[in-house]
Design a protein around this nucleic acid. Structure first.
Lengths: 344, 344
DNA sequence: CTGAAAGCGCTTACAG
DNA sequence: CTGAAAGCGCTTACAG
């Protein structure tokens, strides 16, 4: 394996010139640089990673702590892991994957051995063990999600309150005055991360501000629960003309199945808006208007902030990514009472 | 951050003694070792990763190349990634995650910069770009899955032929003489990896050897296709008394839904065996007997073989992991004709 | 059982 | 614009 000395010899320069020619950290005569690059090319030279880590100030590796729990939704988890890896590569960083077991010890290990320059924290729980460790280590870190106590931390997340408000706004603009919300399972609100309550509260606040009637249900992940949830919404809001789905893919699909079974057309009989989903909603029948949770948005920003921190400390913050709306045709003005088709 | 010199000073020994006390590579007086460990503890010393990589012979990092395609099934993908990470940690190895974009360039980069000691290859396609790169790099690598041309490679995979034979054997032992197979979508057999054909061929061979009648269907991933597939099996095998599900979770669930709708009980009216699933089958209603694809089995062995290769070249091989059978109560003897309930 | 020292392959002040 | 050299923090022969 060729070393920097080999390149220097072939190019007829010193090793410092080779280093600078490759890093661009000082100006090099064009002809010299060309000779160096030729030598690099012909020798197939790649700087040794260990030597760079030791001599330089950074390792160009981020740790990604992505614990996987029993109730982790794999496709969303995957999307975030991939988005982080991709964003990191755009800054010439590699990603070291840390998993469940060893969650906190792994962080200690890779940070204090200086194997990584920083840490990206995924699947942040309200009360997360990793918060204390990261505070203690004082290593550049970005949380994707917001722990209960975020003092001193750098966090990035979708603005769930704004997403909920946007959902209400879009439906209100179409004329809806009575909107149901199908959320996650009760367990998710009890423990879990804090985004489901943030969305729920944002929804109620935005609806209240417009004098819109609301109902709320928290089905489990199975089809029968989705069916019951819809019944509960219609019971609480007999005039409901729109529903917001802030739930997992299986539940969203199940709700559409139930509507189809009952002969309720979307958006003719009911407008439906999917909110904060990290999956595509245009495979549904019908495709759903959506305010998605875009993994790439949060992850790109999180990596940017980690890179900034590698350069030096930055102000702690909670940075909220603004939501976006995509129209797919599942929202229409509500039927007037007279023309409404009877509900089963 | 404490260095090995600090530890040596505090313990009153030389740095080589510290190094050997920690690595155990030469014998150290018990009292000396104790002083060293005390110093390490009190200073919170962790060897610098870059320095170890540069001075030592290995980096203790494996690259994990896990491309994610449009039709990747996230839960299975996730299970394999986690199983590799866990197996690696058991050998004190970390995992560097390489994703889709940059699949082959990433391998070149991390291998020739000596950032990793070896490569674990996931989601192996029949005709996989990474094969040529890895041959060229000559770096310790294990494939989880078997490419078409595996010459010179170390591969680990479930023994799909044996799994299919075991499925037939279990059903034959219960008295079944006519068995349907619901496989993956036609596209998967056309391109994709080679395990679906391996399972299919193993199934036909085992059935033929026992004079068992067979039928085969390849539904797409949606519910309606699953329904049609079942119809096709009954059309081809009117006396079918058992079905093997070698398909994704959604399809397996859909088949059970269809059976329930039609009033066909499992295993009373039809025995069902799930084969090579990387998800739990005991959440199904009813829970299914299963010959699972256990990610940990293949991944543990794959990592073991990678570790071996770091020590020096080993014989190329395709190592097939034997299947296991778990009973959940979804197989029973077939109804005799007279007592059979009529099919809808 | 232990130590002094070379060397891994870079980066980056220091010097000109 | 370029070079000679120190130094990053380890591991591991070499020596005793």
């Amino acid at each position: 394996m060729a070393s920097i000395h080999d390149v220097a010899r072939v190019a007829g320069v010193s090793i410092s010139t080779v280093s600078y020619a490759l890093s661009g950290k000082r100006s090099i005569a064009a002809s010299t640089r060309a000779r160096v690059l030729d030598a690099v090319e012909s020798l197939g030279y790649r700087p040794n990673a260990g030597a760079r880590m030791l001599a330089g100030t950074r390792t160009n590796i981020f740790a990604l702590t992505a614990p996987f729990h029993a109730d982790t939704y794999a496709p969303a988890h995957m999307a975030f892991v991939l988005a982080v890896a991709q964003a990191a590569r755009a800054h010439d960083y590699d990603v070291l994957l840390l998993t469940q077991d060893e969650a906190t010890n792994g962080l200690r290990r890779v940070a204090s051995s200086r194997l990584v320059d920083g840490i990206i924290v995924l699947d942040v729980a309200g009360d997360d063990d990793r918060v204390a460790v990261i505070r203690e280590l004082g290593v550049p870190s970005t949380f994707i999600g917001v722990p209960r106590d975020a003092a001193g931390l750098v966090c990035v997340d979708l603005d769930f309150e704004a997403a909920a408000a946007l959902a209400v706004e879009k439906l209100a603009a179409a004329g809806h005055r009575s909107i149901g919300l199908i959320g996650h399972s009760p367990g998710v609100y009890a423990r879990g991360s804090n985004f489901p309550p943030r969305f729920r509260d944002g929804f109620f606040a935005a609806a209240a501000a417009r004098g819109i009637e609301t109902a709320f249900a928290m089905p489990e992940r199975d089809g029968p629960s989705a069916r019951l949830a819809l019944d509960a919404l219609y019971r609480d809001c007999p005039d409901m003309t729109a529903v917001v789905l802030h739930a997992e893919e299986t539940v969203q699909a199940a709700v559409l199945d139930v509507l189809r079974e009952r002969g309720l057309r979307v958006p003719g009989d009911l407008s439906v808006l999917s909110a904060c989903a990290s999956f595509e909603t245009d495979h549904f029948e019908p495709p759903l208007d959506t305010i998605p949770l875009v993994a790439a948005d949060s992850c790109t920003r999180a990596v940017d902030l980690a890179i900034e921190q590698v350069g030096g400390p930055i102000e702690p913050r909670i940075e909220l990514v603004p939501p976006r709306f995509y129209e797919r045709g599942s929202i229409a003005p509500p039927r007037t009472r007279s023309s409404a088709s009877p509900r089963p």
